[in-house]
Amino acid sequence: MTSAADVEQKLRDKLKAADVTVIDTSGGCGASFDVAVVSDQFEGKRLLDRHRMINTALEEEMKSIHALSIRQCWTPEQQKAKQPS
């Protein structure tokens, strides 16, 4: 079974993500996640390619994940612009 922590760790490692939020939406079976990723590796990449990067990073996990919703995949600059703190 894949846990939210597994998914988060993979995204942090593979995409050098600065900020990762993973929510297990499966109700316990570990087959459905919502993710939000902030990584400077997304710089200059269009949305489709960013999603592909996430899919590739989670290639192993995707075999057992039924549904992955990518809510956000932002560069650090986009995150700053969208969530002024």
Partner: peptide, 21 residues
């Protein structure tokens, strides 16, 4: 599509993306 899930949308012969996109 080199894409692990469905749905998949094609526009003018090109892969556009999945549901989130």
């Amino acid at each position: 599509s080199q894409w692990p899930t469905f749905p998949q949308v094609y526009i003018n012969g090109e892969f556009y993306g999945g549901c989130d996109i």
